[in-house]
Design a protein around this nucleic acid. Structure first.
Lengths: 110, 110
DNA sequence: CCTTACGGTAAGTTATAACTTACCACTTTG
DNA sequence: CAAAGTGGTAAGTTATAACTTACCGTAAGG
């Protein structure tokens, strides 16, 4: 367990609006499950299930405090997502440059 | 049309594995619909539908070339996603720092 | 201990979205 | 202008995942 899943798992996890909402609230400050559930329009078990997905995606960590489970953002998972975005962003910028150059050539050969 | 949706729409869009695959291939270099479909295990209409979602999320742009539609990454949408991630990442780092400080206090007052 | 607080898991329901095929619209070209 | 190439859209099917309620386990406190 606690295995580092590919960065891409974070995108599947944050694809759900409820999970994004949970993620944002945990990012504000660490929160327990009940606290999260009381501020959301879904049941507590639903929140637990979402937190499990976020945890497996490496986006949050769980810290026991008595019977409570306090959830924190895991910066590593978020960082992995940033890197993934950056990689493809840079690739796209490069490709766009090449495309623009090609278009210029075409234009000139008219 | 062509309205800029909130950055968060990108996460819903990239939550689907097939759309991530399409996004990656478009990031490599601009591609037409048929080219994308021929390299994927789904039908061409499915690719069209995915591209529509990606476009509405501001992640790709469409450039007409005769009867073909060539799709490019739209750096603005990707940039918006990076900013969203960064915002919450920084918020979390700050909150984590505060949490660590609190824990230290607790430890010391034992 | 017994009770209360807290939360994870199982099982079942249901809404959705990812797919398919069929069809149509548009350019380009012979 | 007919034919071929390309791709968007409509309609319908189906797999899935987001939810619910019910139940159980564990830690803290009287």
């Amino acid at each position: 367990m606690a295995n580092i899943k590919p960065a891409v798992a974070g995108f599947s996890a944050l694809g759900d609006p409820t999970r994004r909402e949970i993620f944002q609230r945990v990012a504000e400050r660490p929160r327990a499950v009940g606290e999260l559930a009381s501020g959301l329009p879904v049941s507590r078990p639903a929140v637990s299930q979402h937190l499990k997905v976020l945890k497996e995606a490496g986006l949050v960590r769980e810290v026991a405090d008595g019977t409570r489970r306090v959830y924190h953002i895991d910066p590593r998972g978020v960082g992995a997502m940033r890197e993934w975005l950056d990689k493809h962003w840079r690739a796209a910028l490069g490709a766009f440059q090449k495309f623009a150059d090609d278009e210029t050539e075409k234009e000139q050969s008219k």
